[in-house]
Design a protein around this nucleic acid. Sequence first.
DNA 1: GCCTTGGTGGTACACCTGTATCATCAAGGC
DNA 2: GCCTTGATGATACAGGTGTACCACCAAGGC
Lengths: 203, 203
Amino acid sequence: MPRRVDHEERRAHITAALLRIAGTRGLQAVSMREVAAEAGISLRLVQYYVSDKPTLLRLGLDELAARLDRRIRERAAARGAGLAPRAVLEVVLTSILPVDEASRLDRMAWSAYFAVALTDPALLAGATNHPDALEDWLTTVLVRARDSGDVNSGREPRTEVAALLALTNGLSDSVVGGQRDADAALAILDYQLDRLFDRSTPA
Amino acid sequence: MPRRVDHEERRAHITAALLRIAGTRGLQAVSMREVAAEAGISLRLVQYYVSDKPTLLRLGLDELAARLDRRIRERAAARGAGLAPRAVLEVVLTSILPVDEASRLDRMAWSAYFAVALTDPALLAGATNHPDALEDWLTTVLVRARDSGDVNSGREPRTEVAALLALTNGLSDSVVGGQRDADAALAILDYQLDRLFDRSTPA
DNA sequence: GCCTTGGTGGTACACCTGTATCATCAAGGC
DNA sequence: GCCTTGATGATACAGGTGTACCACCAAGGC
């Protein structure tokens, strides 16, 4: 037998190179040859470890989702166990926002993926990506907060969560778009959370 | 002299074809030949009336901005003169949201443009597109509303407006992304506006 | 020691892209 | 009547794309 190689690790290496290109030069700059060059390997090897270009793109999308998941867990771990409802929302939403260079590049790549996914349903097919799951979970968190009195009973948890997620996505786009910096986006997010968790506010 | 042709009208025809493709099949499906076919003319004519591909893409972006402007004015005109602050916000924000097929296709095209603009600053160069101008204007509207007592004095107009615009953009993406329909997005927007214009709410 | 077999290199092929070029047509001025 | 000139057609060209193919290498089983 010839020497064997960890395919999974190789694919991860290639995927990282792909996302580096997608985040800096856009998805339209992603070709098999460019990915090979960025990964420092030959075109043949990209073909060998990643059969198709569709497969390659799918790898990138999955990695992007995995990175977001990792960011959320890391941020949650950094704040310890037994997080208050507001802290949970802060952790999740600030994990989505592009607050440093790495998350900024990932958000750029994500925007590119979002655009092509709109007209290429093949990319989404079978994706584990379920934004609704996140929304459901945060809604239960907010329901608990309302029941315990941290949030006024007049608020509709599901609507509030949907709005917060949409707001965070819109803010993220404005940050990568250069309309404002991350701190400004964080301030707006905080402003909204302050209002939501102000029990002195009726309705 | 041979017969002369209205170049402006021809370019508009070509631009419309371009945006039809961008909205249905994405910007990556936009080639000179595809645009020609969609416009029902020859490749040579696309070259003749629109010299470059960069020029073509720029035409599409400008038209997209012009259409949004038109939508806002039409919606405003439909509601008569002397609009209350809340009505102004409703007009602007619901004009951004993809509420019908036409605005849905335009939003799709816009998302594609946004993605490539992130890594291709040449597209933005010299663009009349100024989201900040819209934000400034709406802020003055909200300041007036606060001074006249329609909005609680504890609110920060600039932050509220920035949040509403980001929210609307996020909601728009969720609509074209198929996460929810236009009515659901409108409901969320209304929910937020109701809260903002509720004077009984302190802070 | 050979031979199977996973890894690798190089390259060719068909296709699509943006753009340039050559030619033609037709309407009016002189 | 010709000739200038705006509008159009057809096509060629160079470059980039995804993918397929052919050769080769080297490590271990028998």
